[in-house]
Nucleic acid binder design. Structure first.
Lengths: 136, 136
DNA sequence: GGAAGTGGTGTTATATTATTACATACTTTC
DNA sequence: GAAAGTATGTAATAATATAACACCACTTCC
């Protein structure tokens, strides 16, 4: 369990986090940029810099296999362990979960190997229950 | 356990696979392109098309968090389960392993959720034993 | 034999994702 | 108020990936 500070966000960070929260799903950096143009955003770097901080604070996760970002699904983004993601390739829905037992096993492997773990990416691609049951 | 066919590779596929095998580590598509210019490669698509097939055959893995590709570490690329990767951020070394117990737990989660799993990405970022012990 | 299908290739152009470099401004601390 | 640290704005460019189209080799099937 890692406790993340809940710092005051700057204006840009708050705008980016707001976009992701409102979206309720993953957005690419450029999609966020387009959403925020009316708020004065003009360049990708404004988005990327905010995202860097939000990821550092644990409030946003990066989905490596999508090159996209998603707001952490924990309310208030309270402390929690390493997250995993199930990504539906039909509807784009992303489910975040916290597979503590999996993380424990992976940590055991790293300790046996002498590997110092900094960051863990677990992403499952497939089809969610809804999209399987209604194949249209 | 999934048995991958070991098809005859086309010329381009063999060249790309050879580059990755020789490299003994991850390469980006554009790094491969540069290595193969002397073999007549001229465009990224020649690399990406070969990589697509090699990944499909299970002979090459894509490292999502690096946007890079690595030859499968199993000799002859025999049948094996889902792979995971530990990536050293100092020396760039990549260790492939097969965490069967982890995969089993993740599969249990997907079955409970009704999620149909197509592809699993597990990537650990950190520092390998060698780079921790000799901090230069 | 020829038509149609399939898969690989070559090439140009373009789309998408991310960073470098530099200038400016604001805040905190001493 | 000078110094240090952090946030911002902007332009340019780098790095990664795909679309579109033409051509060729091979098969298969009538």
């Amino acid at each position: 369990m890692i406790a993340h500070a809940q710092p005051e966000l700057t204006k840009n960070q708050a705008l980016v986090f707001g976009s992701l929260s409102d979206a309720g799903g993953p957005l690419t950096a450029y999609a966020i940029l387009d959403l925020l143009r009316e708020n004065g955003f003009r360049a990708p770097l404004q988005v990327y810099r905010a995202l860097d901080k939000l990821v550092e604070y644990g409030m946003v996760h990066r989905l490596e296999s999508l090159n996209a970002f998603v707001a952490c699904s924990h309310k208030g983004c309270a402390e929690h362990g390493t997250a995993a993601f199930a990504i539906c390739e039909i509807c784009g829905d992303v489910s975040e979960f916290t597979p503590d037992e999996v993380i424990k096993l992976l940590k055991e492997w790293t300790q046996a190997e002498g590997f110092t773990l900094a960051r863990t990416t677990i992403e499952l691609r497939g089809t969610c229950r809804d999209c399987i049951s209604q194949p249209n």
